[in-house]
Computed example of a mutant assay.
Amino acid sequence: MSDKPPLLIGVARLIDSLNAHFGKACAWLTLFLVIGTAVVVVLRYGFGIGATALQEAVLYAHALVFMGASAWVLQRNGHVRVDIFYQSFNPRRRALVDSLGTLVFLLPVCLFLGWSSWDYVTNSWATLEGSSESGGLKFVYLQKSIILVLVISLVLQGISDLIKFANILSGRMPDVEVKHG
């Protein structure tokens, strides 16, 4: 008997690892948000100097913090769950509820978001869209691409979760508690 996990569990672990690393990297951008915002405020109100590029960089980082780390938050079960019944469910019932939520809500919403934003992002790339502000960043197309990063990372995390839920439902895997820290 091999000690290797089944292929799909390995795929789920790889997706989880990628989303965790990317989410943690995005989370570190909050430090830049605080420092960057403070510098913009001090420059503007203390010295009367506008820092358009820095202000836009803070906006880009803000988008990455929320959209780039969303799959990691989903993975860690950190999203808001308002359900007084769910917490009393056994692991198999929770896996069934989570599977249905992923199939009925998460994946269709992600696919719709990807489909509806595709032209928005590709048009921006086609022109290498830059800031309309004087002194602004020339990478608006990269900022708009963060929408697709959100979609791809959430779809991948949904697939990873479905693999784990299927293994819980089949009894091949116990319910894994989220480890915070």
Rank of each mutant, 00 (worst) to 15 (best):
K4S: 11
K4M: 12
P5Y: 07
L7N: 04
I9C: 03
V11C: 10
D16Y: 14
D16A: 15
A20K: 15
A20F: 14
H21P: 05
C26F: 12
T30M: 15
V34E: 08
I35K: 06
T37R: 07
V39L: 15
Y45P: 11
F47P: 11
F47M: 12
F47H: 07
G48Q: 15
G50T: 00
A53T: 05
Q55Y: 08
V58P: 06
A61F: 10
H62T: 02
A69I: 05
S70D: 07
V73T: 05
Q75A: 14
N77G: 13
H79V: 08
R81D: 10
D83S: 14
Y86M: 10
Q87T: 05
Q87L: 10
F89L: 11
P91L: 06
V97N: 07
D98C: 03
G101N: 09
V104E: 13
C110G: 09
W118V: 00
W118C: 03
W125I: 05
L128I: 03
S132V: 12
G136Q: 12
L137A: 10
Y141Q: 10
Y141G: 01
Y141D: 06
K144H: 02
S145M: 07
L150H: 06
I152M: 10
S153T: 13
L156Q: 01
D161K: 07
K164L: 13
F165C: 02
F165S: 00
F165Y: 06
L169S: 00
G171W: 14
P174H: 02
V176Y: 04
H180V: 01
